[in-house]
Design a protein around this nucleic acid. Structure first.
Length: 372
RNA sequence: CCGGAGAUGGCAGAGCGGUCAAUUGCACCUGACUGUAAAUCAGGCACCCUCAGGGUUACGGAGGUUCAAAUCCUUCUCUCCGGACCA
C-alpha cells in the first residue's frame, strides 16, 4: 500500500487520492507535471513549495516534469508580452531557477524533465484538436469564471486571448498525458475543468495502465502567504481558494515575497518588515512560512535569543512551535530572526547559482521587463 | 461602419487657459511609538542643483493657437458604452 502521508504533508489537497494510491500500488509509471508562466523572477512560494511536492512524488517513483508555459505567458502579457524574451527567459533563467529550488527542497533536479510549450505545440495537430474539443465542452461563463484565477478580477482590460488560456491549460494536461496535474491552489479551477471534461474526450483522452479512460489526479500545494498585512482583511466568509489567493505572496507587491536568489540583506530586511502580530497564529506569514517551508525542508527550527528573553530553543515540530508562539513564549522578533537566518542558509545554493555576471544581468532584464 | 464618452504621476481619481510638478485616496519610503511587524502620529514621494531658491523634463502620440496649455483647435492611436450589420 503506497504511503501518501508525507506527500499529504506538503499538499493542501489531492483530488483523486484513491486513484493515485491504487495506481501506485499497481506499479504504474505515473507522469506528473506542473506548469509555469514565465512571469518574472522566482519566489519562494513557487520554487520551494513545488520542490517539496516533487520531492515526495519522486520518492513514490513518479516521473516529474516541469512545463514551461511560454504561450500562456505570452497570452497573459507577462514580460511585456514579448514572446521571444519569454522563450529565452524560460530556458536560461526559469528552468535553472526551478531546478535549484527543487534541489533545495530535497528533490533530485536531474530527474525533472523540462517540457517546453512551444515545442509541444509545434506542428501538433492533435494538440489543437484537443484544444477545440475541450472548448466545446465548456460554456463561456465557465471559462470566464476560471480566468479570474489568472490573477485578475476585473473583466475590463481583458482581451479575448485570455479566454483561450484555460482550455489550453486543460488541453496541455491531456497532450502531455499527465496522470498527475500539479499546481498551487490558485490553479484549481482549471484542474477541476480538466477533471470534468476528461471522460468526455474522444481525441486524446488520458488512460491508465489498463487502457481505461481516467480523470487526471490533481495535486495542489499551499500558497505561501505574502509577508505583508493583507490589504483586504481575510474573513470567515471567504472560501479556502479565495482566502489563499488573497493572502498569497505576489511578485508585484515588492515587500511581500522573498526571491530565491535574494541577498542575505534583502531576506533579513523583508522578514524584519513582515506582518507578525504577537500570539496570532492564523494570519501570520512568518508562522506560515515556518510551517510550510522551514519544517518540511530542514525539520527543525533553532531560535537564538538573549538569555533575558528566554535563551536558545530548538523546535522539532511545527505544532510545538505554534503552541509556544500562541502562548507568547515565542516572541515574533525572535522567530523572525530565526526564519531569516534559516532562509539565508537554505537559499545559499540559489544565490550561488545566480551569482555570476550573466545571471545577474538576466535577472535585471527580467525585473525590468516585469516593470519592477 | 455610425454615434457618444474617455486617455493625467505605481494604481485609483480631481483639475478643464495662468495661483499646476499638478487636490485627494491607496501603495511606497523615512522618523516617533511598541523588544518585531501591524495600528497610530509626523515628514517624504518626477529629475537635477548643498538649503532659501533655481533649473530641466512631464498630464496617450504628433502638430497648432496664445505672452501663457494637462486645460483651446487639428490629427493620429487606443479604450469604454450604445447603435447598425445578423449574411
Amino acid at each position: 500500500m503506497a504511503d501518501l502521508t508525507s506527500l499529504k504533508q506538503v499538499t493542501e489537497e489531492i483530488l483523486g487520492e484513491e486513484k493515485l494510491s491504487s495506481m501506485l500500488d499497481g506499479g504504474e509509471q505515473l507522469k506528473h507535471y506542473i506548469g509555469f508562466e514565465i512571469s518574472g523572477i522566482l519566489h519562494l512560494g513557487s520554487g520551494l513549495m513545488t520542490g517539496l511536492v516533487i520531492r515526495e512524488l519522486q520518492k513514490l517513483g513518479v516521473d516529474t516534469r516541469i512545463f514551461l508555459a511560454d504561450w500562456h505567458t505570452w497570452i497573459n502579457n507577462k514580460l511585456g508580452g514579448d514572446h521571444e524574451l519569454i522563450k529565452r527567459v524560460a530556458l536560461e533563467y526559469f528552468m535553472p531557477a526551478m531546478k535549484v529550488s527543487c534541489e533545495i527542497a530535497g528533490a533530485d533536479p536531474e530527474k525533472i524533465a523540462p517540457i517546453f510549450g512551444s515545442e509541444l505545440y509545434h506542428n501538433n495537430d492533435r494538440y489543437w484538436q484537443s484544444l477545440v474539443e475541450v472548448s466545446k465542452n465548456l460554456t463561456l461563463s465557465r471559462v470566464m469564471k476560471s480566468t479570474t484565477i489568472l490573477g485578475r478580477q476585473e473583466s475590463e482590460n481583458m482581451n479575448f486571448a485570455l479566454l483561450i488560456y484555460p482550455p489550453m491549460q486543460v488541453a496541455d494536461i491531456f497532450e502531455m498525458g499527465n496522470h498527475i496535474a500539479h499546481a498551487g491552489m490558485d490553479q484549481r479551477k482549471c484542474h477541476v475543468i480538466a477533471l470534468e471534461v476528461a471522460e468526455k474526450l474522444k481525441i486524446n483522452p488520458l488512460r491508465d495502465g489498463a487502457g481505461n479512460i481516467m480523470k487526471p489526479i490533481a495535486i495542489h500545494h499551499h500558497l505561501v502567504m505574502g509577508l505583508q498585512k493583507p490589504a483586504t482583511a481575510p474573513d470567515e466568509s471567504m472560501d479556502k481558494v479565495e482566502l489563499t489567493t488573497a493572502m498569497k505572496m505576489s511578485k508585484s507587491v515588492p515587500g511581500s515575497a522573498v526571491f530565491i536568489h535574494d541577498t542575505p540583506e534583502e531576506i533579513q530586511d523583508k522578514i524584519r518588515k513582515a506582518y507578525a502580530p504577537e500570539k496570532e497564529t492564523k494570519f501570520n506569514p512568518i508562522l506560515d512560512w515556518t510551517q510550510h517551508l522551514l519544517f518540511p525542508i530542514i525539520g527543525e527550527v533553532v531560535i537564538e535569543r538573549e538569555e533575558r528573553f528566554g535563551g536558545n530553543v530548538t523546535f522539532k515540530s511545527y505544532p510545538e512551535l505554534e503552541a509556544a508562539y500562541a502562548s507568547g513564549d515565542l516572541f515574533p522578533l525572535d522567530l523572525k530572526n530565526a526564519v531569516a537566518k534559516h532562509l539565508i542558509d537554505i537559499l545559499a545554493p540559489a544565490r550561488e547559482r545566480f551569482s555570476d555576471k550573466d545571471s545577474q544581468e538576466l535577472i535585471a532584464l527580467v525585473k525590468q521587463a516585469t516593470g519592477r
